[in-house]
């Protein structure tokens, strides 16, 4: 699903965020991305979502070479990815329903279709009774579940999460991680950046360990030769 071939990223101000990173995350897999802040976790995720472009190397998503994706095709790539953020990034002037519906509206789905899918997604994250609520009235854990519902509502093949439990207490964090595992079980590829090492260790999925822009354990998800 995701393949990095010797990817390097240097920011315009000269900082090397990633250096020679190679790995392969097969379709249907689930993995974690760990490392201190500044190790390059967010940059790696941003490259996949085309929020940043690699300085060197090749990057493939679902067989497509993202290093060659033109500006106009970027939205189509992003629609294949469900993205989840540490600070949820919800629209606070719209209801939970409208927030979750956004990807479907963008993709131009029919009205009835949207209502059905939004309710299915909210049901999966256990917030079906909150569809009319405004996000501000929800707890942090609930807001993150709205974020997850929005990420999965159009059934993308890949979920990317950047510190999804960073603002949540341990118990809520476990719930959120379990939710990701559930989606992974039905075939969604999941990549989660997190520094919650205790929690991750107990879950037993492969970990990509970044340190100062380099992959410390390239053997874990090594690309096939």
């Amino acid at each position: 699903m995701i393949r990095f071939d010797n990817i390097s990223k240097r920011y315009p101000e000269g900082r090397d965020a990633l250096q020679g990173v190679s790995f392969h995350l097969p379709a249907g897999a689930m993995a974690f991305l760990t490392g201190h802040s500044g190790a390059g976790k967010s940059t790696l995720l941003k490259l996949i979502a085309l929020l940043e472009r690699a300085t060197r190397g090749q990057l493939f998503l679902d067989g497509e070479n993202l290093t060659r994706t033109g500006k106009r095709k970027v939205p189509l790539v992003r629609r294949k990815i469900g993205m989840i953020f540490q600070n949820y990034r919800l629209l606070f002037d719209r209801t939970v329903f409208d927030n979750v519906a956004l990807p479907l509206v963008i993709a131009g789905h029919r009205h009835q279709d949207i209502a059905r899918r939004v309710r299915a997604a909210l049901d999966k994250v256990g917030l079906l009774d909150k569809e009319r609520a405004l996000p501000i009235t929800l707890s942090g854990g609930e807001q993150q579940r709205v974020g997850i519902a929005r990420a999965v509502v159009n059934k993308p093949p890949l979920l990317l999460a950047d510190e999804p439990t960073g603002n949540l207490d341990p118990e809520l964090s476990r719930d959120i991680m379990r939710l990701f595992e559930e989606f992974n079980r039905v075939g969604v590829t999941v990549l989660i950046a997190s520094h919650d090492l205790d929690l991750i260790a107990r879950m037993g999925h492969p970990q990509l360990r970044l340190h100062q822009g380099r992959l410390l354990n390239p053997e874990v998800l090594a690309p096939p030769q």
């Binding site: 939205p75 189509l76 992003r78 629609r79 990815i81 993205m83 990034r89 629209l91 963008i106 993709a107």
Partner: peptide, 13 residues
């Protein structure tokens, strides 16, 4: 903020 979020989710220009 809204523009950024919708761009993240794959909205076209």
């Amino acid at each position: 903020e809204e523009i950024e979020i919708t761009k993240l989710i794959g909205a076209t220009g």
